[in-house]
Design a protein around this nucleic acid. Structure first.
Lengths: 253, 253
DNA sequence: GAGTGGTCTAGACCACCAG
DNA sequence: TGGTGGTCTAGACCACTCC
């Protein structure tokens, strides 16, 4: 037995509440997830087979399969046909999500602050119109911000939004992140095309970011779309490479 | 009717082959996908409801749901409870996958070439041992390569693999990419933690990459794990920012 | 050959959304 | 109020893996 560990399995104290509005498969998935993340179920453990699990939990096999499928999508466990289901040796830091810099920083406890340099409404530039798939001359909102952490500048951010998407004020943008304002405005972002590169800082950028001219900057540009496929936001950001890196977790599906 | 377009729907010429080894839900999903990507079904189109689709296709509703669920995961369509299922205004360039630089370049028609500078087996450095979660002093294979496209250097690549993972030779690494060799060796990568940053080039790096000293370089380091959670590869890559950017498509789940 | 996950069926009830 | 997707059941047969 070279790779697989303990033959044991887990659902001793799993409780299913059939009167709860929470779907049964989700209750099961969450309890498994908690057991795995807490270490109560060790990596490498084989789960009981699906039929047996269904019996132990008093659920049908498709429901149990739905729960397991959810955990597989999360990257917590692996199914192998003819073999069984096994808890993965998890190395996931965090799932890849569509979040804003503000969310990321706050989640890591960095307490970001924001300086809103300008909010203006004007006709889109040609490049921006193309990125957002708007007709040339359409009015749009241009937002220019500087993001700080620990009192030090971290990023220069320019965002372009079609007018009418959401109400933006300097106050609201200083209090929270753009993506939070979009969520509060009922906008559900669905996907984004993102491009990450690097280039040297111009002297103006160096001044704003407290770097030397020619210092390496990370560039990120992103177009985000809502569930209906409408372009919602085009962002062009510049990060100080000395203070910021992108971290991603990729999961093969 | 502000947002939704044609009330029409599609499965006129869908053919289901029950004797095929290809799963039925997959046959349905692929034909929908082809119809959408080819433009035969326009963005915004509402699909027939699930019960009706099942009837038209001669399948059960769960099977149809499985097919639709597959397309939702691909980001091609959206389900809205109480409303219906709609083809999204797709802007996806490509799904986010765990691929190597070689695969990416070849897929875009760039015909990459590789210079293998060294392949040596030695004890892991302390940092590498930590990244790969190996005991200090464990032997590992160190691979140093330069990647070219169109006769110009593009990237410096250092990769560290525990010994015994796969047989590596200069010839095989020159003929194809590392990830292809891993796949050929029966290694299935499952997830990876990746970090993207930037910094100026040292003079040695500048010489190898045909850049000036201090030029902006993109840095990428990545640890990849197989389905069992074993560390398979730790890569540290340097890209010429003037010639390369990372492109990602993020999908909210 | 025994056991596993992969697929499929034919129903059912419920929560949500729109008119 | 009617229609939609979301969830759930209790079975069934198959393909694959391992012994």
């Amino acid at each position: 037995m070279p790779e697989c560990s303990d033959p044991a399995n887990a659902p001793a104290a799993f409780s299913i509440d059939r009167s709860s509005p929470v779907p049964l498969y989700y209750q099961v998935a969450q309890q498994f997830e908690q057991a795995i993340r807490s270490g109560a179920v060790q990596p490498g453990t084989m789960l009981a087979n699906e039929v047996e699990l269904a019996g132990q939990l008093g659920l049908s096999r498709p429901t149990v399969r739905q729960a397991i499928g959810y955990l597989v999508d999360q990257g917590l466990i692996v199914r192998k046909r003819g073999v069984g289901t096994q808890v993965v040796h998890s190395k996931v830091r965090r799932p890849l999500e569509l979040t804003s810099l503000y969310d990321d920083l706050r989640d890591t406890g960095a307490e970001p602050t924001t300086l809103v340099r300008s909010i203006v409404e004007r006709e889109v530039d040609q490049e921006d119109a193309k990125a957002l798939d708007l007709a040339p001359g359409t009015p749009a909102v241009y937002v220019d911000r500087i993001r700080y952490t620990a009192g030090e500048p971290l990023a220069l951010m320019t965002n372009v939004l079609p007018v009418g998407v959401v109400e933006l004020t300097a106050e609201s943008l200083q209090a929270t992140g753009l993506y939070q304002l979009l969520r509060d405005g009922g906008i559900h972002l669905h996907l984004a095309n993102q491009r990450i590169g690097a280039r040297p800082a111009t002297s103006a950028e160096a001044r704003d970011l407290d770097e030397r001219r020619g210092a390496a900057l990370l560039t990120m540009s992103r177009v985000a779309y809502d569930t209906a496929g409408r372009s919602i936001e085009y962002g062009r950001h510049l990060y100080r490479a000395s203070r910021y890196t992108f971290e991603l977790t990729l999961v093969e599906r």
